[in-house]
Design a binder for these strands. Structure first.
Lengths: 141, 141
DNA sequence: GCCAATGGTTACTTTTGGTAACTCAAAGGT
DNA sequence: ACCTTTGAGTTACCAAAAGTAACCATTGGC
């Protein structure tokens, strides 16, 4: 029966979730998962990583063009944070006008896998979410 | 040679990333990935999902105790948003004092997989990130 | 001696997140 | 009769983060 299969999968996943939320604190402050969700759980970090991951390297303004809607300030802020965490490599060429290239480090590449799975989920389930939202909107009316 | 293996993996991943960032817009506004990253890219949504995913269901205050640091208001706000998106099921029992139970829907369960992979990455690479941050802090000093 | 191009920064506004106090409704004590 | 407790929230208020717009530095070409 279908329910049983789902239940078995759910049990495994439940155990994995439990394990993650109990990961103990490392060197810096909170438990790693908390800390890292805190850091990348913003509007632009994961998107930046996806875009950087889709090519070898990108210049500042090229990246800005591709990440639709991001402001110049937020792109610098986001990139600096990612650089500080060792996910992005920033290379400045001493030219005029300046040329700055951004690329994922190996650490950044390793995160890309998880981000992609998340992205795949998003595109697969967007219809279901849209439907849920519409149901909610109708119920409120 | 190791480099070749890494490069091949990188090429695959790059292609996947490219695919995701070009997913076209669906019913609501932006491209699904943008929209969904926007929605779950906040401080508490993914954490709430992880905690809900680690059990069958949780009452409001129990969940609040487990998600360390979340305020009452942010927990309600977060849960309402997740409910509106069809990820969380809210069940109110007509008792006094009230009892409200929260559980992941099947849609929520399906997201859990991606979140767990993200969490695993976080605990695996927390040391590397801590190191990068320290390097940055030292360089600034 | 002025403009354009690139990659920013600064000052200001708006939106979001966080805190603390309040509500509701019934049960239990005194 | 009245006060307190309990769970699950609101409401009003304040701080922090994100967004906007304008500005800056360099320098080769006109």
């Amino acid at each position: 029966m279908e329910v049983t299969v789902v239940d078995n999968q759910a049990a495994e996943v439940r155990a994995a979730a439990k394990k993650i939320i109990t990961v103990p604190a490392f060197g810096f402050g909170l438990c790693p998962v908390r800390d890292i969700l805190d850091r990348f759980g913003d509007k632009w970090s994961l998107l930046s990583i996806l875009h950087l991951g889709s090519t070898d390297s990108l210049r500042f303004n090229e990246l800005r063009k591709r990440i639709d809607g991001i402001s110049q300030r937020m792109l610098t802020v986001t990139l600096r944070a990612l650089e500080a965490d060792g996910l992005v490599q920033r290379t400045v060429y001493a030219e005029v006008p300046p040329r700055v290239e951004y690329a994922l480090t190996e650490l950044g590449q390793s995160l890309l896998g998880a981000v992609i799975e998340f992205g795949n989920w998003a595109s697969a389930h967007a219809p279901a979410i849209a439907e849920a939202r519409q149901r909610g909107a109708l119920a409120a009316a």
